[in-house]
């Protein structure tokens, strides 16, 4: 009894001390915490507070009763989604598009960053960097409008060139076979430049001495990249990979929605566009929320798996 009491007392004092230390440290850095406060409030208000809305997935929504007071409906909206004839098609499309982006768009900024890192002319490097960042600030609406103009079968630049060369015009934006290339190429064009920022900052932390040592050992530029640069930034790549897998089911809503055409409908309908069409547009908020929740749970599972893989292969993890 006494032993237990002592242990409890010891443990209690241990945690009490730790708590006091924490408070002391918070007070010491109070100004820094004050800076964080707006972000914490933002997070609480815009990310945590709306989470109660997820209960909508289990309810029959009534305008008058609101989310909290609407009657419970069990899993009926999840069942409606899972048994809908489009379920597997939509899941497959989402995974295929996301997988292709992971395969091609994810490495693109790494490659570009490595190339930029090798450029010796500082001014040229800065110009290239600036130009590669610009597409990031152009909205998808503008990007797809530009693509429509460039690739139009009626007066588009590409098709005019084809016609002048005696070739048939092609409806690039509306043909099934060109859908995936259009998605991936436009995604790389828009996002690769901006994505290099994080890798370029990681590259600056690589010690020049390692390159010197590699050079003494006879390594050329390519070997230095493989044996020095990449291992040094693998932590950053790992973290970015985990995040990318976490967003795998997002697939790029606005891009895909804008690129949808009748002919590519079967392969371009992803979870988010499906939610818009069958849920939000028709006022089936419960159904849309159920699909959204389903997606979030699946994303969490994928992210956990990616975290495990990254932990084992790259010794990097976020939890």
């Amino acid at each position: 009894m006494l032993g237990t009491a002592l242990t409890t007392q010891t443990t209690g004092s241990f945690f009490g001390k730790k708590r006091a230390d924490l408070k002391k440290r918070i007070w010491q850095h109070r100004w820094l915490y004050l800076f964080i406060l707006p972000c914490v409030i933002w997070l609480l208000v815009f990310c945590y507070y709306p989470m109660y809305g997820a209960t909508l997935a289990f309810k029959d929504y009534s305008y008058k009763l609101g989310i909290l007071n609407s009657p419970w409906a069990g899993l009926k909206h999840f069942r409606a989604f899972i048994y809908s004839p489009d379920f597997w098609r939509v899941i497959k499309n989402t995974l295929v598009i996301s997988g292709l982006k992971l395969l091609f768009s994810f490495p693109a900024p790494i490659l570009l960053a490595l190339l930029l890192n090798e450029v010796q002319a500082v001014r040229f490097k800065r110009v290239v960097q600036t130009f590669s960042y610009l597409p990031n600030f152009v909205s998808w609406v503008v990007v797809v409008s530009l693509m429509n103009v460039i690739f139009s079968p009626y007066g588009g630049v590409i098709n005019d060139l084809r016609k002048n060369a005696g070739l048939e015009t092609i409806f690039f934006m509306g043909s099934r076979e060109y859908f995936y290339p259009m998605v991936i190429l436009s995604d790389i064009w828009k996002n690769a430049g901006w994505g290099t920022i994080i890798y370029l900052s990681a590259l600056t932390s690589v010690s020049p001495e390692l390159y010197e040592a590699a050079a003494i050992d006879g390594a050329g530029r390519l070997k230095s990249t493989f044996y020095v640069t990449l291992p040094c930034i693998k932590g950053t790549i790992g973290i970015m990979f985990i995040n990318a897998v976490g967003g795998l089911l997002n697939a790029g809503f606005d891009q895909i929605l804008l690129l949808q055409q009748p002919d590519n409908q079967l392969i371009s309908d992803i979870l988010d566009t499906f939610v818009l069409k069958t849920g939000l547009s028709q006022g089936r908020f419960e159904y849309a929320t159920a699909i959204g929740l389903f997606k979030s749970v699946l994303s969490l599972v994928l992210m956990t798996l990616a975290n495990e893989v990254s932990k084992r292969t790259m010794e990097v993890s976020i939890f």
Binding site: K23, K24, W27, Y49
Partner: peptide, 28 residues
Amino acid sequence: YKLKWTGRAMALGLATTLMLAGCSSGSS
């Protein structure tokens, strides 16, 4: 005193969140 300050800060944060939450239900 420190404990009170921390408590107040948390209470303030909570109150802010609830106030914002309350705004919407209040208006409806």
